[in-house]
Nucleic acid binder design. Sequence first.
DNA 1: GGCACCTCTCGTACAGTGTGCGAGTGCATT
DNA 2: AATGCACTCGCACACTGTACGAGAGGTGCC
Lengths: 231, 231
Amino acid sequence: MTGKQFTSVWLREPRKAASPGLSREEIVRASIELLDAEGLAGLSMRKLGAKLGAGATSIYWYVAHKDELLELVYDEVWGEMTMPEDVGWREAASVLAYSMRQVMLRHPWSADLLGRLPALGPNAMRVASGMRRMFRQAGFEGLDVDYAGSTLTAYVYGRTLPEIAWNTSMSDREYDPDEMRKMVLTAARDYPDMLEGLDFDAYDDPSAIQAVAFDFGLVSVLDGLERRLPA
Amino acid sequence: MTGKQFTSVWLREPRKAASPGLSREEIVRASIELLDAEGLAGLSMRKLGAKLGAGATSIYWYVAHKDELLELVYDEVWGEMTMPEDVGWREAASVLAYSMRQVMLRHPWSADLLGRLPALGPNAMRVASGMRRMFRQAGFEGLDVDYAGSTLTAYVYGRTLPEIAWNTSMSDREYDPDEMRKMVLTAARDYPDMLEGLDFDAYDDPSAIQAVAFDFGLVSVLDGLERRLPA
DNA sequence: GGCACCTCTCGTACAGTGTGCGAGTGCATT
DNA sequence: AATGCACTCGCACACTGTACGAGAGGTGCC
């Protein structure tokens, strides 16, 4: 996971291809199934090999190390994102942001990859490239095109990541709003500012609140970007 | 790392205290030294024990598992952040955002913790509480106070996290702007939109560009939040 | 003094991890 | 028939977090 030096699967030629047994596609597909079912910690080379009816180390013929495999599945995640064309930039940016969030929530393990691995795969490039086109069409110029793009994705990462962490930490225990309220009160007991104006009803439907919070921030970010447009 | 059920060091009473040998403080201090020197992957209970002149498993008297230890060091990170008082909210928010970024860059391993672990420690509470006060003083009301806060931190996380990932992946090889330009050209060869208006000089001083990008987004986010204020 | 108890340390062991190495298999080409 | 390539995989290594239980040292009570 922690990179030793800068390389990427996407910067070197893949194996010759035309193999009878395993294949990258098959390996990636099985990995994603395992990841969706058991999370990032549940993906081990041995388990993956077993799922494929192969030895663990056979995978290393197709992939240099686990990190490369993760880069491959990572790009599949990008492949699920919607980058709309032929609509106004605000609309396009909104749709993209919502779709990023949906994809991340659908594949919680992707939160551990997003922003950590180099995003140089074809799907990531498609999205990044569409986003650049979108912001250029909006009127941004020069480096601002990239600044705007990274501002948008930064917000979506940063907002969705804790949401996912929270979901996963909750998923194995049934959620009890009352217990939660009690917990918050305990944690905040010495911090009056944390309680002032706190809406306790919010804990009844946390995912609804999360959605509203996401939208609030997204609108703010888009408004802020709009102000940066050259007159 | 992946939580089984929702608990936190901060929600249970610590050990009685008054111990002759080790102590939580000492353990946390040594952990941070190890983390700063070798990163998250470099922190193992055995290494930590060795550094403390103790057995690896002795640590488990003070801490239930490694995750609890991480929660403790995590809160120390929050302790390094500056939450200014008695200044206008925009100024306060800027200072806080910059200080979050600085702290993260100073402790790159914190990027793997931020947003993943529950932030219920005293230092995290101090910052969160100050931030709520700040946004309430700015004029936000009700849930908007929290929405504004999480928008700001989301941006800072999301922006700084990839920056850190990039730094760490670069740190072990000397950075060569020319090689980098070549790499980008290779990765983007089939995506004309990625090259259009690309500023190749940017690769000469990447950290300067990162700082400018951070500021661009921060100003945008603050502008956007300002527009959400009730008239 | 003797005994019980509590606090704290730590060696050992277990079940797992990623992956380097080298032997082995089967097919295609010469 | 022989050579070589594409591919598989068992084994081994060094490492991880941590459960368990034995033991050490101190304190308080009878």
